[in-house]
Design a protein around this nucleic acid. Structure first.
Lengths: 145, 145
DNA sequence: ATAACTGATACTATATTGATATCAATTAAA
DNA sequence: TTTAATTGATATCAATATAGTATCAGTTAT
């Protein structure tokens, strides 16, 4: 079970790069080369992130992409939602048996509870937090592990 | 993002049925009809669960499947692992940048931490627990929600 | 004018998920 | 002892999701 798909993974990496170079426009080509992300695939992801107001773009020569939102205001939960759809553990799996009427369904509650835990974990980790972790790691004797 | 696939969902329902009729052999056909699970698909799932020692089978007329393990010893984490593969948030997404050497990678740690939280949640919910929830729900004024 | 860019969109390939079909072997029971 | 109900094993197929490529029009700094 893969929790993060390539799309989300690439998007996070692109945002980390933009986050570390705030105020400049960074081209898709630069991000693609630097982060080793397939160029056209990345273009699509960047467009999508514009639609969600996470970044802005500038067309033409010397154009590129730039962070719009604060890094701390971008939890990876949001990126997962954008690129993989809302986290849903399952539809009420017990409907056929006892859930003619759903809201009191204790089993559903159990499942929803997990859903919330998972989501809240992904909410805690923001691009801002990852950027700070990254800085700290770079400060240390280089190479990790 | 769908956390439980049909396979896992069906497997849980099948186990709940076997769990509520312990000591008897229940045929795939009965489970299929009762739980509205595609027959041949279910057969495959049951075979898989035999391989993992969760259930046993008896061939021939009046044959079927029966729980082998204690319901409390079957966390849905295990079913997810069997039918969807081990939960892995992602490969170290930052390798290219700083993770020539992985084990000290703080970012990787962040990701692994979430992985553990998610897994531990799915570990807490066992077939046994769901069976008790189910009983409690059936005891209440029928229909939930 | 031109080269470096993004916007938009269509397309292809591959993998995963969900489902069906078939036939041999086993067993309870008529 | 035949038959119907069943599992074991395996092959195949369809639908969907994921990953990646290609193309062309429009914009802008130089």
């Amino acid at each position: 079970m893969k929790v993060l798909t390539k799309k989300t993974d690439y998007a996070i990496r692109a945002l980390l790069m933009l986050g570390s170079r705030r105020g400049e426009y960074v081209s898709a080509k630069t991000i693609s080369t630097d982060q080793d992300i397939p160029y056209q695939f990345l273009r699509g992801l960047l467009q999508e992130m514009i639609r969600y107001d996470l970044i802005v773009s500038k067309e033409g020569a010397q154009g590129g992409f730039m962070m719009k939102k604060e890094p701390d205001e971008i939890p990876i939960a949001q990126l997962i939602e954008i690129f993989q759809g809302k986290v849903q553990v399952s539809e009420c799996m017990f409907r056929k048996q006892i859930c003619a009427n759903r809201s009191r369904c204790v089993l559903r509650h159990e499942i929803m509870r997990i859903e919330q835990v998972v989501n809240s974990e992904f909410d805690k980790v923001t691009i801002g937090k990852l950027l700070r972790d990254l800085e700290a790691a770079n400060g240390m004797a280089h190479g990790c592990g």
